[in-house]
Amino acid sequence: MIAPVVIGVLIFFMIPTFWSIYLSFTDGPDYVTYELVGLQNYIDMLSPDSEVWRELLNTCYYAFVQVALSLVVSVLLANALNANIRCRGLFRVIYFLPSVTMAAAVGMVWRQLLNSQYGIVNQFLGLFGIKGPVWLTDPNFMMLGVIIVGVWSSAGYNMIILLAGLKNISKSYYEAAEIDGAGSFQKFKSVTVPLLSPVLFFVTITSVMNGFKMFDLIYTLAGSGATVDKFMQYYRTMVYGIYEKGFLYHRLGAASAESVFLLVIILILTLIQFKLQDKWVHYE
């Protein structure tokens, strides 16, 4: 009964993955004519002046900041929705809407919304007398713009999971805390966070993993405008780098080596998170 899934995974995921690892030791104009070059692609990639470090930095910046912001927002929203409020169902649906959207359309729309002159983000900031930054070309704000879009599209999904986690926390813990004289913040800190930690853990792992694999947003948000390296260097994540090398510049060996590097990073991060889990995750 597991055959259809396992065989499929074997053929369309496992074999390609190992094939790709093999390609990372080769070099050639395409994936039909190539020669084995040993570790050369890895040596080039890991040299100090290689582009990959910049890409790694961008990827980490995006993954960690986006995940942190998205988690804070979704914890707050989940708590707010867990309070006894009207129209909870409606809010829930609205917050989830961005997760329903096609990535191709998301980038297309946000590229316009972030425009410094006619985009609504800066017009909104203008209401408070803030002169919005030039999101699409100012190196200090470019990735932040992508992060905003990332939070916009992921917070709702995380919130739904956290909300369910909150519902599972028995009321008696809060009552006990109140008897001990705890205020709202105290209750949040000493009851909500520890008891929510397994769910938070799950959300963190999946979000960080998705953050490291982020591609669509960069492809649609940046790809159409700032394609010269002068701007692209602030956007280019590892997966975008892999795509560019593999599909646009026909450097399949280098692209494969970078994929292997990324895969190793994701594996290490996951392991670290599982180790850390013991430190802060409390199971009931």
Binding site: N115, S116, Q117, V134, L136, T137, D138, G225, A226, K230, F231
Partner: peptide
């Protein structure tokens, strides 16, 4: 400027 042309070509 070059930057402005990235935003609106």
């Amino acid at each position: 400027s070059v930057e402005a042309l990235v935003e609106i070509d």
